[in-house]
Design a binder for these strands. Structure first.
Length: 889
RNA sequence: GGGCGGUUAGCUCAGCUGGGAGAGCAUCGGCCUUACAAGCCGAGGGUCACAGGUUCGAUCCCUGUACCGCCCACCA
C-alpha cells in the first residue's frame, strides 16, 4: 500500500461490491426509505409499476426503477414527504401458467387438483418465489418504502376491487352478456382487445364457389379461414351492388353442408374486394358478428374452447381448427368448389401471453362500459391536469381513447379476483355484493353460486394508485399522497394500464391519479433490436451490476434516457460510465489526502466568498450553474441533461481544471491559501456528491462517509439549492482567459513536440491592459500548469525570431524555439487557420452590412456579431504578423 | 390504410424557446507529471438525408421526397 492510499484510507480503484451491500443494508436498518407524513411539507409520491410476481429483472425494469429512484431520492433530499410505494402484480394468466407448468412436471394439472387446492398452490408458489424481483430491485439501489409493499391480491386491494366492481355494476357501467370476444384456445380464456397482438402473417386467400340455392348460378366468396364456413349463416352483399340484385330472395346452398343460408344486404361489405360477396360467420368473426346482429342471423359456433371442431362441424368434428382447414380445402377442391388460392398477407391475432393464434368467438362475459370513463381521462389530459411526457404521446392517447371499445374483464382462469357475483339457484337472481351474501335477497334461498370467472389482471392494477394507499378506507396516506406526483413507466403499457388508472382514479376519487406521466423508451441491444431470449441478445442487469457496479449501470441508463427515443445498450457503453464512477472515486481520494486531518470537531466557518482567489471563485460559480441545471433537468424529466451536466462538471471542470489548479496551494507553504483551498475543495466535493447522489447512490454515500466530521447519511442530507452569491461572471471570464492561454501554450508544446518535462519560456503580446493584469495575477498557475520557466507579457514589441506561436483574438502567444521551428509546417498551419477565419469574417461582416439584419435582429445578437467580427479581424491581423515574421527567417 | 418517431463526426447519440455545429467511444501524436494508464495533454474528422418554402438569418419552423423503425386498424 502506498503512502497515498494509507493517507486517504480509500483503495486505489473503486470496489463497488462490498460498498453497495453495506450501504443498502444500512439505509434499510435506519429506516431511511420509509415515507414521512409531516404537516406543512410538500408531498411527493410515486407508485411503482408493479412488476409481475413471476417476473425476473430485465434491463427495462432497471431503467424504469432507476428513473423512479432518482426522483424519489431527489425529493427526499429536498425534504418533501416522499413515498415510493412498491409492490407486485398477481399477473393472472402468467402466474397460472407458471404453476401449471410446475404441476405438469408432477403429472398433475389444475383440474386434477381442483380449484381450491390449485389456488392454495399458487399462493404457496408466491410465498416461495414471489419475492425474486423485489430482491433484485434492491440490488439496483431502489429506495422503495418496503414496509408498504403491496400485492394486487392482498386483502386491502381485494377489498378495493370489490368496492369498485360493485359500484360500477350498480351504476350500470359493468354488465354481463354474450358477445364476441378474443379467445385464447390454449389459456382457455377470453382476452381484452389489447391483449391480442396482431402479426402480419403470410397466408392464403381462398376463393370458394357458393352455388345459388335454386341452382341458377353461383357467387364466389373469398376467405382466409375456410374452416369457418362450417359456421356460415349468411352471405352478405352490398345493397347497391347490381351484380347481386334479387339474390336475397334466392339464398345460397352452403357447400360441404346440407344447409341453405340467406343472402343479406349490408353496407359493411366492400364492393371492390374480391367479388363483393362476403361469407358471414357470426360466431367466429368480429365483423360478421356485427352483421349478424343487424340481420338477426343465427350464431353457429363450430369450435370448442380448445379450438377443436365441435359437433356443429359435422364430419369435421374432433379436428383441430388448422387441421380442419386443410381438410376443408382438400374437400372443396375435390368437389369442385374451389375457384383459386391466392397468396395473401394478413394480420393474425395472437395471445400476448402464450402467442397462440386467438379465436374470435362468442361467449358469455363481463364487460365495462368504458366510454364514459374514457371521456373523463381525455379531458384530464386535454386540460392539463395530467401531463404526459413526452407530449408526442398525446395524440396517440386521444386516438386510442376515442376508439375505445367496451372492456372485457372476465377471464376463465382461476388465479385472480373472483368476480363478486352470485346467482340464486332457486330463483335465478343475480347478486353483486362486496360481502359474500348468505341468502338471496329476493327469495331468501341460501343456494347461491358464485361466478367462477376471475377479473382481468389489469382491473386490479387500474386501482393501484389509490388501492395501495388504503382506499376505500379514509387513510392518512390517501390524504397525503393522492393524487400521486408522477407515474414513470414504459410506453407499451400506456393503454393497458396508464389509461385505465386515469379512468378509475377520476371516476372513484374525482381526481387524477397522478399529475405527470413520464413514458420512457424501450431498451434495445446495440443494433437497435428488441432484446429477447430467443435472439440471445438479452443483457441481464444483475450481470451488468456484478461486472460494472450499480452506479455505473444507473448512470448509463440515465445518460441515455433522452425523451422519445429508444436506448441502445451495450457493455461498452456501461464501461465508459464505469470510468466516470472511478474518476469520481479518485478525485475523492485525492481530496481526502488533503482533507483527512482538516477538522475533527466543529466544521470550519463558511466560505468568505468576498475574497476568493480565482480558481475558487470560478469553481463555485460553475458549481452553482451545475446546481441550477440539475434542478431544471430533474423538474423537466430531462434525465440525460441531468447526467451530462454532472459528468461535464465533475470530470472536465472539477477534475481537469480545478484540482490541478489548486495543487500549488495544497502542496504549498502558504497556510492561509492552503486552508482556503481545503475549505473550498471540501465544499465543492460535498455539493458534487449531493448533486450526484440520486443517480449514483452508493459511491456518493461511501465517499460522503469518508469526509471529515460526523455525518448523517447522504440520503437525508439536503440537496443543494442555487446560491446567487456564488455566481461570478467576472471570475468565469478571467478563468476562461487563463484557460485559453494555458491551452495555447499546451498546443504549442504538443505541436512542437516539446517533451512534457522540458521547461520553456513563453511570451504573450497583448495590448489589453486589463486582460494583462488578469493573466499576470495567474502567472504562477499558468507556469505550473504548462511547465514554463518564465512567462512575460508585453503590450507590443519584438519577439525572438524562430518562435512557435498561438493566436488569440487580441493576443499572441510565443514560445521561442531557436532553430527548432519547421517554417513550412508553421506556415501551413497558419494558412489553414487563416482560411477558416476569412470565411467566418466574411460571413459575419456580410451580416453586419445587411440593413435588414441590423433592423430586425435583436440588439444583443447584433452586438455579439460585432464582437465576433472584431475577434476574427484581430486574429487575422495577428496571423498576418506572424506569417510575415516567419517569412523573414 | 392511418398515426408517431428517426436520418447530425467512423460508431452511439445530445443539441430545450431559430442567431458562430457538441459529447462519449473509436482514430492519430505525446506522456507511467506522487488522485486516477479505468488516466493526463494535444490533434484530426461533419454539404446536420434530399428538394423546396418562411425569415435579415434554418440542424432547429412549414411542405414534399427517400430510406429506417415503431404503434394502431374489422377489407373478408
Amino acid at each position: 500500500m502506498s503512502d497515498n492510499e494509507q493517507k486517504s484510507g480509500l483503495a486505489k480503484a473503486y470496489d463497488f461490491k462490498d460498498v453497495e451491500r453495506k450501504w443498502y443494508d444500512s439505509w434499510q436498518e435506519n429506516n431511511l426509505f420509509s415515507a414521512k407524513m409531516e404537516e406543512g411539507k410538500d408531498n411527493f409520491a410515486i407508485v411503482i409499476p408493479p412488476p409481475n410476481v413471476t417476473g425476473v429483472l430485465h434491463v427495462g425494469h432497471a431503467l424504469n426503477n432507476t428513473l423512479q429512484d432518482i426522483l424519489a431520492r431527489y425529493h427526499r433530499m429536498k425534504g418533501d414527504n416522499t413515498l415510493w410505494l412498491p409492490g407486485t402484480d398477481h399477473a393472472g394468466i402468467a402466474t397460472q401458467n407458471v404453476v401449471e407448468r410446475q404441476l405438469a412436471t408432477e403429472n398433475e394439472s389444475r383440474h386434477t387438483l381442483g380449484r381450491e387446492k390449485f389456488i392454495e398452490r399458487v399462493w404457496q408458489w408466491k410465498e416461495e418465489k414471489g419475492s425474486t424481483i423485489i430482491n433484485q430491485l434492491k440490488h439496483l439501489g431502489s429506495s422503495c418504502d418496503w414496509q408498504r409493499e403491496r400485492f394486487t391480491m392482498d386483502k386491502g386491494l381485494s377489498k378495493a376491487v370489490r368496492a369498485v366492481f360493485v359500484r360500477l355494476f350498480n351504476e350500470g357501467l359493468i354488465y354481463k352478456g354474450d358477445y364476441i370476444v378474443n379467445w385464447c384456445p390454449r389459456c382457455h380464456t377470453a382476452l381484452a382487445d389489447d391483449e391480442v397482438e396482431h402479426e402480419d402473417t403470410a397466408g392464403a386467400l381462398y376463393h370458394i364457389r357458393y352455388p345459388y340455392a335454386d341452382g341458377s348460378g353461383q357467387v364466389i366468396v373469398a376467405t382466409t379461414r375456410p374452416e369457418t364456413m362450417l359456421g356460415d349463416t349468411a352471405v352478405a352483399v352490398h345493397p347497391d351492388d347490381e351484380r347481386y340484385q334479387g339474390l336475397s330472395e334466392i339464398g345460397i346452398k352452403l357447400p360441404l353442408s346440407e344447409r341453405t343460408i340467406p343472402v343479406v344486404l349490408d353496407h359493411h361489405v366492400q364492393r371492390e374486394f374480391g367479388t363483393g360477396a362476403l361469407k358471414v360467420t357470426p360466431a367466429h368473426d368480429r365483423d360478421d358478428y356485427e352483421i349478424g346482429l343487424r340481420h338477426e342471423l343465427a350464431v353457429l359456433k363450430v369450435m370448442d374452447d380448445s379450438g377443436t371442431m365441435n359437433e356443429a362441424a359435422g364430419d369435421y368434428q374432433g379436428l383441430d381448427r388448422f387441421e380442419c382447414r386443410k381438410r376443408i380445402v382438400a374437400d372443396l377442391k375435390e368437389q369442385g368448389y374451389l375457384e383459386k388460392i391466392e397468396e395473401y398477407d394478413h394480420a393474425v391475432g395472437h395471445c400476448y401471453r402464450c402467442k397462440t393464434v386467438t379465436e374470435p368467438t362468442t361467449s358469455l362475459q363481463w364487460f365495462v362500459s368504458v366510454k364514459p370513463l374514457a371521456a373523463k381521462a381525455v379531458d384530464a389530459v386535454r386540460d392539463g391536469r395530467i401531463n404526459i411526457h413526452p407530449k408526442s404521446w398525446n395524440n396517440t392517447f386521444y386516438a386510442w381513447m376515442d376508439n375505445i371499445r367496451d372492456w372485457c374483464i372476465s377471464r376463465q382462469i382461476w388465479w385472480g379476483h373472483q368476480i363478486p357475483a352470485w346467482t340464486c339457484e332457486k330463483c335465478g337472481e343475480l347478486i353483486v355484493s362486496e360481502k359474500d351474501p348468505d341468502s338471496c335477497p329476493k327469495c331468501g334461498s341460501g343456494e347461491l353460486v358464485q361466478e367462477t370467472d376471475v377479473l382481468d389482471t389489469w382491473f386490479s392494477s387500474a386501482l393501484w394508485p389509490f388501492s395501495t394507499l388504503g382506499w376505500p378506507d379514509e387513510t392518512k396516506e390517501m390524504a397525503h399522497f393522492y393524487p400521486t406526483s408522477v407515474l414513470i413507466t414504459s410506453f407499451d403499457i400506456l393503454f393497458f394500464w396508464v389509461a385505465r388508472m386515469m379512468m378509475m382514479g377520476l371516476h372513484f376519487q374525482d381526481e387524477v391519479p397522478f399529475k405527470d406521466v413520464y413514458l420512457h423508451a424501450l431498451v434495445r441491444d446495440k443494433h437497435g433490436k428488441k432484446m429477447s431470449k430467443s435472439t440471445g441478445n438479452v443483457l441481464d442487469p444483475l450481470v451488468l451490476i456484478e461486472k460494472f457496479g450499480t452506479d455505473a449501470l444507473r448512470f448509463t441508463l440515465t445518460a441515455f434516457a433522452a425523451q422519445g427515443r429508444d436506448i441502445r445498450l451495450s457493455e461498452e457503453r456501461i464501461e465508459g460510465y464505469r470510468h466516470f464512477i472511478n474518476k469520481i472515486w479518485n478525485a475523492a481520494r485525492f481530496s481526502l489526502m488533503h482533507l483527512e486531518d482538516f477538522f475533527t470537531g466543529e466544521k470550519p466557518p463558511p466560505i468568505d466568498h468576498g475574497k476568493l482567489a480565482l480558481p475558487h471563485a470560478w469553481i463555485l460559480s460553475r458549481l452553482n450553474q451545475a446546481t441550477i441545471d440539475s434542478h431544471r433537468a430533474l423538474n423537466d424529466f430531462r434525465y440525460n441533461d441531468y447526467a451530462s451536466t454532472l459528468y461535464q462538471f465533475i470530470w472536465h471542470e472539477l477534475c481537469d481544471w480545478y484540482l490541478e489548479w489548486i495543487k500549488a496551494d495544497l502542496y504549498g507553504d502558504d497556510d492561509e491559501a492552503k486552508e482556503t483551498a481545503r475549505l473550498v475543495l471540501l465544499t465543492v466535493l460535498e455539493e458534487s456528491l449531493l448533486l450526484l447522489h440520486p443517480i449514483a447512490p452508493f459511491i456518493t454515500e461511501e465517499i460522503w462517509q469518508a469526509l471529515p466530521g460526523e455525518r448523517d447519511s447522504i440520503m437525508i442530507s439536503p440537496f443543494p439549492e442555487a446560491r446567487d452569491q456564488w455566481q461570478n461572471s467576472e471570475a468565469e471570464t478571467s478563468a476562461q482567459l487563463v484557460m485559453e492561454i494555458i491551452g495555447g501554450i499546451r498546443n504549442i508544446r504538443s505541436e512542437m513536440q516539446i517533451h512534457p518535462k522540458a521547461e520553456v519560456e513563453a511570451f504573450i503580446i497583448s495590448s489589453d491592459a486589463a486582460a494583462n493584469e488578469r493573466i499576470m495575477a495567474q502567472a504562477q498557475s499558468i507556469k505550473t500548469l504548462t511547465r514554463l520557466k518564465s512567462l512575460e507579457i508585453e503590450s507590443s514589441g519584438q519577439v525572438p525570431k524562430g518562435a512557435a506561436s498561438y493566436i488569440l483574438a487580441d493576443k499572441e502567444i510565443f514560445v521561442p524555439l531557436a532553430g527548432l521551428i519547421d517554417v513550412e509546417q508553421e506556415m501551413a498551419k497558419l494558412k489553414k487557420a487563416r482560411q477558416k477565419l476569412e470565411k467566418q469574417e466574411k460571413q459575419t461582416s456580410g451580416k453586419l452590412k445587411n440593413e435588414k439584419f441590423l433592423a430586425n435582429a435583436p440588439a444583443d445578437v447584433v452586438a455579439k456579431e460585432q464582437e465576433k467580427l472584431a475577434e476574427f479581424k484581430g486574429k487575422l491581423e495577428k496571423i498576418a504578423e506572424t506569417m510575415a515574421r516567419l517569412g523573414d527567417l
